[in-house]
């Protein structure tokens, strides 16, 4: 058995997973979604159909007379809707509660037996998935929208960079929220309740069904600052359609970053509590 290909144990030394482990997990997340091409096609078709429906409603609102609605003109609203339809695929607003299912079935223990904690494993894989989604689920609705309607193109070069940052932060916020919903499975029989709550609140207070500025201003500002939902859809889109000055936009990025830090810390805490429950009470 001895030889250069023996299965002799690794000489015990200091060894820890490096950033490469996370890169590899992200690559696997990318690849996993890339293998389901038909599902991607189905998703972009669905998102595009909804794009037409949502934008029809927005157009009707504008056509009712005023040239702008809640500070958005026609082209800004078009971009808001179509880039929004792409963005929900990137942040993956609605995902099947896969991790909750792993907790319920006990498969989560195979995640615990790895030298990287489950949350970091999932986060790395999700970023890889988002990378794939940018190339597919984001691009298609935006192109469809651009072909059929007159979209607003950013005037400032810096907007593109800000939008990219904002999208990354939005993905992190969305991941954290979905993670918290899934982690509820450590304590609940099933997570349909939290799942429903998330779907509803993220859609209506996040800027998906209509920009949060359709609410009274005070309420919109309150939502943006005090809840994580607008950080997922509304803020990236407001940055893309250049609502407000670059300073305001940097401020919005700051709000997102604040939510990322808060939520990831919360996730970590919840995961530790969940693991503790699992480890003490059993699956």
């Amino acid at each position: 058995m001895r030889g250069d290909d023996s299965l002799a144990p690794h000489a015990t030394g200091s060894r820890a997973p490096s950033y490469r482990a996370y890169l590899a997990l992200a690559a696997a997340g990318f690849q996993r979604y890339a293998t389901y091409r038909q599902a991607t096609v189905a998703a972009v078709v669905t998102n595009s159909v909804f794009g037409f429906l949502r934008f029809a409603v927005m157009l009707a609102v504008i056509d009712a007379g005023t040239r702008t609605v809640a500070g958005y003109d026609n082209r800004q609203l078009a971009t808001f809707v179509w880039a929004g339809q792409g963005l929900i695929g990137v942040v993956l607003l609605w995902a099947l509660p896969e991790f909750a299912e792993r907790i319920r079935t006990g498969d989560v223990i195979t995640d615990l037996l790895r030298p990287i904690d489950p949350m970091s494993q999932l986060l790395a894989a999700d970023l890889g998935r988002a990378g794939y989604a940018v190339l597919t689920r984001f691009v298609v609705p935006v192109v469809v929208g651009a072909l059929v309607f007159d979209l607003y193109a950013p005037r400032r070069q810096v907007t593109y960079a800000l939008f990219a940052c904002s999208t990354l932060l939005a993905t992190l916020v969305c991941f954290s929220c979905r993670y918290l919903v899934n982690a509820a499975a450590y304590w609940l029989l099933d997570v349909r309740g939290p799942q429903t709550a998330w779907t509803l609140t993220s859609g209506i207070f996040g800027g998906l069904y209509f920009p949060v500025w359709f609410f009274p201003d005070a309420m919109a500002i309150g939502l943006i600052v005090a809840t994580p939902f607008p950080s997922v859809i509304q803020i990236p889109l407001d940055i893309l359609v250049e609502r407000g000055s670059p300073a305001v936009q940097l401020g919005l990025l700051g709000v997102q970053a604040g939510w990322v830090v808060t939520l990831l810390a919360l996730c970590r805490w919840v995961q530790r509590r969940g693991e503790r429950k699992l480890v003490i009470q059993g699956g």
Binding site: V61, G65, T66, L189, T196, A197, Y209, F214, F215, P216
Partner: peptide
């Protein structure tokens, strides 16, 4: 779970109405 689900399904109905109310906040006619 059932209680949560029933509440959730009612809220989805509420959402339809809220959307209409909010839209008419910014426009007189649709």
């Amino acid at each position: 779970s059932l209680a949560v689900d029933v509440t959730g399904s009612v809220l989805f109905g509420v959402l339809d109405i809220v959307s209409v109310v909010v839209l008419f906040r910014v426009t007189p006619t649709l």
